[in-house]
Nucleic acid binder design. Structure first.
Length: 351
DNA sequence: GCAATTGCATGATTT
DNA sequence: AAAATCATGCAATTG
């Protein structure tokens, strides 16, 4: 089984596609709709798709990344869990020459803001009313956001709070809306991890390169797709469930990340057996859904939780020791979004 | 047999 | 101080 780090992956063109897109996204000023809970719904996205069954159905996958897949088909005896919409909320909603209330700002601080928001749900910026579901969600999750022991302010938070990115910018963000078409397609897929759609990628890539095409210029399915992702993000139902500062061994060439036990057990699907679960996690920045193998090792009297097959993700985002991954979860449909965040280095003259 | 993966043990660190 | 957690190296396994 190919591993992401092999880098070739048969078809052979993995990274530079993502990285080009990533670079484009980071360089362009992309309007990024914040996930504020403008619509309280967004939980009808299908049944609790929490599969522990092990089937052997198995066909070739393509475009699996971007197709919503509430019932992914496990293969190779691994349970498959949860699914996908592009987190690349895009480019879509406000694209035409920015009206006065549609601000364009750099992508990065904006999602840093989201992190800030998610990590500090109890501390809304003055301009923001609390999301309606907040308490309920926190209770439901039984996982207080702020109990994270680590230096939660080291990364995303500070990255937002210090610069001039003011919260009020976001108050001007128009509510995201649009046709929502939830497609419950079965997506055949083969095990290993990363699903990606070259077509989609190119489309998105073009969108970026051409200064954010409007959603109307995209194929219909993509409109629906983006709208759905947008809706999910806007629903405010995504919570930070896990945050990990990457270590040297996490970013080594094996492509596996040790997850904090507490968070893994609290928020990721339970691993009842040794069999890995396949977790689909949308990339927050790229139009990609990653497939990770989530599993554990027995360790003394305990367990170590591992997110495997993460090499390509790490590589694509250029993550190194000290950088951070953050996993978000949407409570209702059990969807995840993952994001890698570079550590913020003080501006020093070259190392 | 080699390289890539996976499984495990151990020591360091944290709680 | 003891227990728990985790980073990491290496052995075992697999392709």
């Amino acid at each position: 089984m190919g591993q992401m780090d092999g880098g070739d992956g048969g078809g052979g063109q993995p990274y530079h596609h993502y990285q080009a897109l990533l670079a484009a996204v980071q360089q362009q000023n992309v309007p990024f709709p914040l996930p504020f809970p403008s619509s309280p719904t967004g939980s009808e996205a299908g049944p609790h798709n929490y599969h522990h069954h092990q089937s052997h159905s198995h066909s070739h996958s393509h475009n699996a990344a971007l197709a919503p897949s509430p019932s992914p088909t496990p293969s190779r005896g691994f349970a498959d869990w949860s699914a996908s919409t592009s987190a690349f909320t895009s480019l879509a909603s406000h694209s035409s020459p920015a009206p006065s209330n549609a601000l364009h700002y750099s992508f990065s601080p904006c999602y840093a803001f989201w992190t800030h928001y998610m990590l500090n749900k109890n501390a809304y910026p003055p301009s923001f009313p609390p999301p309606p579901h907040d308490d309920q969600l926190r209770l439901a999750n039984n996982h207080p956001i702020r109990d994270a022991p680590g230096p939660a302010s080291t990364y995303g938070v500070d990255s937002f709070t210090s610069p001039s990115m003011a919260p009020n910018i976001c108050t001007h963000m128009p509510p995201i809306e649009g046709p929502i078409s939830v497609k419950e397609e079965k997506k055949p897929e083969v095990f290993p991890r990363v699903v990606k759609s070259t077509d989609e990628l190119e489309t998105r890539n073009s969108a970026v390169e051409f200064h954010c095409e409007t959603v109307g210029t995209l194929p219909e399915s993509k409109q629906g797709h983006e709208s759905r992702a947008t809706k999910l993000l806007n629903s405010g139902e995504y919570q930070v469930i896990l945050r990990k500062e990457l270590t040297k061994s996490d970013v080594g060439n094996v492509g596996r990340i040790v997850l904090p036990k507490k968070d893994a057990e609290a928020s990721l699907p339970p691993l009842l057996q040794r069999d890995p679960l396949i977790l689909h996690m949308e990339d927050m920045v790229l139009p990609v859904t990653w497939k990770f193998k989530y599993r554990y090792w027995p360790n003394n009297k305990s367990r170590m939780y591992i997110l495997d097959s993460a090499g390509e993700f790490l590589k694509t985002h250029g993550l190194q020791a000290g950088d951070v991954i953050i996993i978000y979860k949407n409570l209702a449909p059990d969807k995840f979004i993952i994001r890698g965040e570079k550590a913020i280095h003080q501006q020093t003259t070259n190392p």
